[in-house]
Amino acid sequence: MSPRRSVADALGTRSAILGRSVAIASAEGLEGLTIGRLATELGMSKSGVLGHFGSKEALQLAVLDRAGEIFRTEVWEPVVAAAPGLVRLRALCEAWISYLERGVFPGGCFFVAAAHEFDGRPGPVRGAVEARFDTWRARLTKEAGRAVAAGDLPGSTDPDQLVFELLGLVMALNHAIQLHRDPRAATRARHAVRARLET
């Protein structure tokens, strides 16, 4: 086997492990990931799974990275070409709602679930979850600030407060979809976001 083929095979195996891990962690939490379970489900040895990551914590961090890539593909990339400011902020909110409505992750928002699981635990995984939220909040706040500066939102608008409220609305949507299976939840969320972003 050529070195090039060997590297490709290793990357393919790692990708398969991460894909299955994201699905499990979305529904059962990052702590639900065990090397033994992944080995059984993927038809691998435990050492074969572990060899790609080195530790369960490293696997969890890699899963967070993969989930972040999926979120970026689903929510940020479709709207990156939108005009900065209010137009992009509205588009981001719609893509965010759609991501939950379509059940991109079987357990709802991957990062809300991870935050609930790790917000009370110190360590690298908690830090990585917090960093993801910080990055997302900063992106939304930047667009809100641009909208205020352009006069598309009232000058009295506090971008940090606005983003706090938008985060709350979407977390409520996630809760309504996952716990209550509310078929009108996405419509309610869209109505709430539209009302909050009226100029």
Rank of each mutant, 00 (worst) to 15 (best):
S2H: 14
D9F: 15
D9M: 15
A10Y: 07
A10M: 07
L11A: 12
R14A: 07
S15C: 06
I17G: 03
S21A: 15
A23N: 05
A23R: 13
A25N: 04
A27F: 01
L30R: 09
E31Q: 14
E31N: 13
T34G: 08
I35Q: 09
I35T: 12
L38W: 12
L38P: 07
A39W: 09
T40F: 15
E41F: 06
G43P: 06
V49Q: 07
G51M: 11
H52Q: 05
S55L: 12
Q60K: 08
V63I: 03
R66D: 00
A67D: 02
E69K: 14
F71K: 04
E74N: 11
V75K: 01
P78Y: 05
P78D: 01
L86W: 02
V87D: 09
C93Y: 01
A95C: 06
W96Q: 03
E101V: 11
V104G: 10
F105I: 10
F111H: 12
V112C: 11
A113D: 02
A113V: 10
H116N: 13
E117A: 08
F118T: 03
D119Q: 15
D119G: 12
P122T: 04
P122A: 12
A128W: 08
A128M: 11
V129R: 06
V129G: 05
V129P: 03
V129F: 06
V129L: 07
A131H: 12
T135N: 01
W136F: 14
R137F: 10
R137H: 07
R137V: 04
A138E: 06
R139C: 01
L140M: 08
L140V: 03
K142R: 12
G145E: 05
G145D: 00
A147I: 08
A149S: 14
A150S: 11
G151I: 04
S156H: 12
S156V: 13
T157A: 13
P159Q: 04
Q161H: 11
Q161W: 13
L162N: 10
V170W: 05
M171Y: 08
M171T: 13
A172V: 11
N174T: 00
N174F: 00
H175V: 06
Q178F: 01
Q178A: 06
P183N: 11
R184F: 04
A185E: 00
T187I: 03
R188D: 01
R188N: 04
R190E: 01
R190Q: 02
A192G: 00
A195N: 01
E198K: 11
